[in-house]
Design a protein around this nucleic acid. Structure first.
Lengths: 257, 257
DNA sequence: CCCTTTCCGCGTACAGTGTACGAAGTAACT
DNA sequence: AGTTACTTCGTACACTGTACGCGGAAAGGG
């Protein structure tokens, strides 16, 4: 005997909608007492465990089994809370967007834009694995929404039209992601420690043998200078350089209109 | 009975060195006739097949089995030519860096930097999967080296010191990568076609229900404007916006010294 | 000519992945 | 007590990268 009424709206919550509700933690908890055993864990527990795992050992070590082990349940239990691994990744990404500290904007526009870039970069620094994470869907969750609101607010009232405002934020975020990618790569290499030096010497020897230096007049000189002067460890300086240039360009946009 | 002589230098070519030689196609072909059957395929064939596969169906569909099937050999045959999947990925990345057309630089510095950015962006456009590819090692191959040489040459003789030159190129490449990431995401969504519209409407309905619009005064307005005006399909316009801003900032760098 | 040596091709096997299915158990409602 | 709704999770399957080792093919030496 079926209840025709309840089948009306939401019998099988279609996939995207379910994940969206999950992102906003819009559990359908209408106070009515649920049957069966109370859930032993929660989405938050799963997401937190996954983030911790990714922070410690990288994204590829976030397997469903590893996550389940970490919170002490069977693997398949997770699927009662989360549709699948991809959706879990979306939850993780929005989760870390929530952590950022974003004080009200003050100072010049340049300072505000710097803050926007630095906050986004700090997020990547805390969780280097986001640069590896690519999603089939751009899930719109609370974390990302709050961040975007704060980012756009940084240039509100500066005389830009709405579309330009969006493009400014998009450009900065894009740059930060790209720079963070380089930074994360360098970071991963540094974590290998001495192995890395060994690798570079071995690499250098082979390169010397195999590539014709005379074919690279400019980059040979520049690459060497860059390598000697700041070597490993200054993807961060590079980040700041590009950040400042980009913001200068945006500033100029305002004065030339 | 062993030949002691040949064991002296290169009995087991250590992993990185081997891949490096592979990148530069420095086969140890010393003219001496090899025993046994001639190789039936080549590294190039493997790399080409892999790139084609990635172009057609995305990076995750580049499995060793799929590649082997495509060129009509057994899976394990590949391992006679290539150390493993990660190294193959490195070969693919350097391969597509070879394809770019990079004419001698002409015009103003702005035009030259635009060309640098656009060429790098075109590469990402041709092979959207590179934004997904992250390598443990930054392999230095001929493709990437030529590209870097050309990129640095674009600002040679403009009065920048070597380190600044490197940072300029790095910043542009970083930005392009970030923008390409957004572009690739949008592209993937567009390829889903009508499914996507359906998805957005469904998403919109849920969002309306679940997120409190009043919490997002600025982004609510801006997001709507951006969505209405150029909707899907203009990650490219965004790219140009940021590119121009970044280059403006770099130009300014020169005049202020 | 055969035998040895050296190399290529690749079938099989294994540990690991995400997840579909369905059985077992538990708490509330009738 | 019986029914119903709900959570947990063992098992199974298709798929991944790749180690091992066998069989055969081409060249060199007798």
């Amino acid at each position: 005997m079926y209840n025709h009424e309840m089948a009306a709206e939401q019998t099988p919550p279609d996939e995207p909608a379910r994940t969206l509700r999950l992102l906003w933690r819009a559990s359908i908890d209408d106070g009515a007492p649920r049957r069966g055993p109370r859930p032993r864990i929660s989405v938050d527990a799963i997401v937190d465990a996954s983030v911790a795992l990714a922070d410690e050992k990288g994204l590829e070590s976030v397997t469903m089994r590893a996550v389940a082990d970490r919170i002490g349940v069977g693997v398949m239990t997770l699927y009662g809370y989360v549709p699948g691994r991809d959706e879990l990744l979306g939850l993780m990404i929005d989760q870390i967007a929530t952590e950022g500290v974003r004080p009200p904007h003050t100072g010049t526009m340049r300072e505000r834009l710097e803050a926007v870039a630095d906050e986004q970069f700090a997020e990547c620094r805390r969780h280097p694995w986001i640069v590896d994470a690519r999603l089939p869907r751009p899930w719109i969750g609370p974390g990302g929404s709050h961040r975007y609101e704060w980012q756009v607010a940084a240039i509100d009232g500066e005389g830009f039209d709405d579309i330009t405002m969006d493009q400014i934020v998009t450009a900065i975020v894009a740059y930060v992601h790209g720079a963070a990618r380089h930074w994360a790569g360098e970071q991963a290499r540094m974590r290998l420690g001495d192995t890395d030096i060994e690798w570079w010497t071995s690499t250098g020897a082979v390169l010397e043998e195999v590539m014709d230096g005379s074919q690279y007049p400019v980059s040979g000189r520049v690459g060497q200078a860059a390598g000697e002067d700041y070597g490993l460890g200054d993807a961060e300086r590079s980040y700041r350089f590009g950040r400042d240039a980009l913001i200068s360009g945006i500033e100029q946009l305002r004065t030339t209109r």
